[in-house]
Design a protein around this nucleic acid. Structure first.
Lengths: 343, 343
DNA sequence: CTGAAAGCGCTTACAG
DNA sequence: CTGAAAGCGCTTACAG
């Protein structure tokens, strides 16, 4: 009556009347074991409900079969989606996932990185602090494979998977112009936010390229619904209304929509509206919101694939920087025609 | 120039000119180390950027500082919230989180449980298969502390944290009755779903107790928006309309709302409506939906606290079954008065 | 208070 | 193909 908790490789060896080395080899599928013996060992292990002790195996094999995922938070749709993608790949490739979130100070995060030693074969990192000099290199073993997600870290040796915010914003402006809108205002995101900056840069470039007669028109915002509402009010107070408003994220677009509704303007007949992110709410509001969708799960899955390739190839970085391509989602908030006289 | 990846306790010992035993004791805060020596060791470890190897430590100390979280999925608001609560406690108590999701067959899940050996000090389990005989006991070391979440497993030795679906449904019916509604219809959830069953049981009991003159009125549903819509249509086709509709979840309530809107009925003036779950959308629809909120993050946090107490107390189950208390969220979909002549 | 040594449960050259 | 043995990097009785 051995309890499953205490069955070790020794027990299996004794029971099968072979050495522990042979048990190890048979269980790990090393070719050099006689077929007879292999079968016996496997059967014995199964009968005894033997389960290798992960820590012991890690210690001698230097492999943990575990990937660490370092995120700023575990909450919300973005991270939920990201983890879903990561988890899919992890399961398919039989890896465990050690998640580590932090919120606090950089020191706390450094600590989180350091305690990963001996726990993981590689690390997926999404951190606002990743671009600090030494943050990664000083806290991580030099040999540990690392893949960065949505991190702006130029000249790094680590592969980085980013979201093409710039391209997404350009695609949106292009759509709005094609729909007949000329004067397109933009509600920006928080100062210093990289995603927000890239979206704005895309807007500015696209307007210049596709609607050169109209000067860009940028309103301040901070990604909150309230800031979108305020921007909408400012827009309404201006002497000449734009044909369309493009908000740097959906929440601000919804706030703006609220302001437009209050003022009795119809969307998209009087003014078109677009956002960025494709949050679940986007398709439930009236009118449903044109926006940019990012396949976040795919981003996570891609990062995980890349990382596992590195782990298997002993750190040889398989691919360089990659990018998640955003997708334009056209809904009715933008499909109305712009006033003909506006061009 | 030792690289941080290769600094071991031996290096620290050599550098500080003490034994590895002393280094270990100093680093782990065991009292029996001279203050002088302790300081020297700590300084040396810091200077060398020493980081203990987790697997080695686990192997000899039989502690991993890691809790395994076994969930059916990592996706969606429920799991996102649950993990958030679990993570909060984990961080506060300096534990790592090994997440394991599965979707597939019970065998796959058994395998997931078994590979936890040597990786975790305890397990948080939310599994539709947990009530199968032997599913837990046969795949887990008998000594491993386990806490079950939202699992219907009677007579188990494991602590279980459940959601009080029954009480929540009763509270909702009570609210509707107090708001003046008498004939209250119920849209049920999927056959065999425990949560759905409990909600329905709560509805039936409360109607019998609080509105004895009116027979219960249960419509079929399966938690999908579409099934809520269909139920709404069936309701509209019946000869006598109910005063209120209570759907077993919010998605069905929204589907029902859509059907009522189509038919030109006003909510709550013509018919009141309520759901269960308090999904984010619930407060954004018109009218905002009265519903039941479950503090999922608190559920996760409570489970984690309970589990960590068990781990620290060597498996002594601190508390028995506990329950997450739902909260009634009254919004305008239910606040209208029922027709006076209906009672 | 400190050190030498055994041991945790595996894997993996090294011989044969 | 197989086994004896060293070793992975720690912790922890056991002596002193």
């Amino acid at each position: 009556m051995t309890r499953s908790s205490t069955v070790t490789i020794k027990d299996v060896a004794r029971e099968a009347e072979v050495s522990v080395a042979t048990v190890s080899r048979a269980l790990n599928g090393h070719g050099n074991v006689a077929e007879e013996v292999r079968k016996l060992v496997l059967a014995t292990a199964k009968r005894l409900r033997y389960q290798p002790h992960a820590a012991a195996r890690s210690l001698s094999s230097r492999r943990t079969q575990t990937i660490g995922v370092v995120l700023p938070d575990l909450y919300g749709e973005f991270f939920s989606e990201l983890i879903r993608g990561i988890d899919q790949v992890a399961r398919a490739r039989r890896q465990h996932l050690l998640v580590s979130s932090y919120h606090g100070h950089p020191e706390e995060q450094s600590e989180a990185l350091r305690t990963m030693r001996g726990r993981v074969d590689g690390l997926l990192v999404l951190s606002p602090y990743a671009d600090r000099p030494g943050f990664l290199t000083e806290n991580l073993p030099a040999a540990l494979p690392v893949v960065l997600i949505n991190t702006h870290l130029p000249n790094t040796a680590y592969p980085v998977l980013n979201i093409d915010n710039h391209g997404g914003a350009m695609a949106m402006v292009e759509h709005l112009v094609q729909a007949g809108h000329r004067r397109i205002a933009f509600i920006g995101g928080p100062e210093g936010n990289f995603d927000a900056g890239e979206r704005q840069r895309g807007y500015l470039e696209a307007v210049q390229a596709l609607s050169p007669g109209n000067a860009p028109w940028v309103l301040e915002g901070d990604f909150s619904e309230a800031s979108g509402y305020e921007a909408g009010c400012r827009l309404l107070a201006s002497e000449q209304r734009p044909d369309a408003v493009f908000a740097a994220n959906d929440m601000m677009a919804l706030g703006c929509l609220f302001a437009l509704n209050e003022a009795g303007l119809r969307v998209p007949e009087d003014i078109a509206l677009a956002g960025f992110d494709d949050i679940p709410l986007a398709r439930f509001v009236h009118p449903p919101l044109t926006t940019i969708r990012i396949r976040i799960a795919e981003l996570g899955a891609g990062a995980m694939e890349c990382l596992l390739d590195m782990v298997q190839n002993e750190g040889e970085s398989a691919r360089p920087t990659m990018v998640a391509v955003p997708e334009l989602i056209v809904r009715s908030s933008s499909t109305g025609r712009a006033p003909v006289d506006s061009s």
